[in-house]
Design a protein around this nucleic acid. Structure first.
Ligand SMILES: [Mn+2]
Ligand SMILES: [Mn+2]
Length: 347
DNA sequence: AAGGATAAGAACTTGG
DNA sequence: CCAAGTTCTT
DNA sequence: TCCTT
């Protein structure tokens, strides 16, 4: 099972974001088996369990299992040259994409072991260090723990600081790859504010930045961070947290600050899934609008809706209605459910 | 009739 | 400082 | 399947 999950992760890296959806689905369905055997439930893995988890329509999942079990070989991966295999492996490390993977291969690195000796950026070093932990999916029960902990952290920093856990957690998935927190504060209404000395330049809202920094300080004080941060900007933070339990895994988390009066747009954007966001934004664009996490408005030359919002949405439903997309509950926002309903055909 | 649809933004690195 | 390129996020 | 060429 470990080998099969590894194959599915390699296939995701190999195929890229556009055509790896089915491999991701299969990984999420099968991860449950490994997780339950790790925590001592479920006993030995049976064919019946796999048949229950993997639906008949999951052809790519079945193909990988068949090849790995019967031949101990997956054609798409094992037929690659050692250089191509290295490119695929390297892209599984946080901070290494196609370009930088290629650069490392050109520099002569062929395995993750060798990559440890390469000159890595800070985030890449952290990504390599915690690769195994980060690839493990987060069971919903642990996400719920983190929601309690982080909401308390935010409240400690400022009682007016509100937050929600979005992404796959809000979509109701049983397992998540990371924890997507969105933060909001009644005094943070605009994310970009004109600079007093030069009103043409926009600076990030200083209160949002201060609150975000204070949250990081509180996470540090409580010893919840598993490593240095991957990113720390004025509006967004990416990093790794770990529960104080022995054997706990490092988990990827994101903090994103949302403008208080645009929470409906922000909630929609960060709930996803990403395919649905692309679809809705494409639909907006086809109608001459530009939709992003801050609103919807006439597209400027930059293609952004920053200038002015034309829909004062207080609820996600208003955005669906505006675009003529049938309403989807958060739990319905996965490609397999809405694709037939919205008549999207995409390989 | 055939054929193409598929977004937008934050943060970092590097080079001037 | 600024712009381009890269990566990551839904 | 739907809109554009
Ligand atoms: Mn997520
Ligand atoms: Mn995330």
């Amino acid at each position: 099972m470990k080998a099969v999950l590894n194959d599915l992760r390699n296939m995701q890296a190999l195929r890229g974001p556009s055509s790896s959806r089915e491999y991701k689905v299969a990984e999420r369905r099968l991860f449950r088996v490994q997780h339950e055997s790790e925590i001592g439930e479920g006993g030995p893995l049976t064919v019946r369990q796999v048949i229950q988890l993997l639906k008949p329509d999951d052809s790519v999942g079945w193909t990988i299992i068949k090849q790995r079990l019967l031949q101990n070989r997956v054609d798409a991966i094992d037929s690659l040259s050692k250089e191509d295999r290295a490119r695929v492996m390297f892209q599984r490390v946080y901070g290494i994409g196609a370009t930088k993977a290629e650069r490392f291969v050109q520099a002569g690195f062929l395995t993750l072991e060798q990559l440890r000796d390469a000159c890595l950026e800070r985030a890449q070093r952290i990504g390599l260090e915690h690769l195994d932990d980060v690839e493990c999916l987060i069971p919903r029960s642990e996400s719920e723990q983190w929601r309690e902990i982080l909401l308390d952290v935010f409240h400690t920093v400022d009682p007016q600081l509100g937050a929600e856990l979005l992404g796959s957690f809000r979509r109701g998935d049983h397992y998540s790859s990371d924890l997507d927190f969105v933060l909001f504060h009644p005094s943070v209404v605009d994310m970009r504010i004109p600079r007093p000395s030069d009103p043409n330049k926009l600076d990030a809202n200083p209160l949002a930045s201060e609150l975000l920094t204070a949250v990081v300080a509180e996470l540090t004080r409580r010893n919840l961070l598993a490593d240095k941060l991957l990113q720390h900007g004025p509006l967004a933070v990416k990093g790794l947290v770990r529960l104080p339990d022995p054997g706990a895994k490092a988990r990827r988390f994101d903090l994103n600050f949302a403008p208080f009066n645009r929470r409906a747009f922000y909630t929609l954007a960060k709930t996803g899934d990403s395919d649905l966001m692309m679809h809705m934004r494409a639909k907006a664009r086809a109608r001459g609008w530009a939709l992003n996490e801050y609103g919807i408005g006439p597209a400027n030359e930059n293609g952004s809706a920053w200038t002015e919002n034309v829909l004062e949405a207080t609820d996600e439903r208003q955005i669906f209605q505006f675009l003529g997309v049938p309403w989807l509950e958060p739990e319905e926002r996965s490609f397999a459910i809405y694709a037939p309903r919205l008549r999207i055909t995409r390989s």
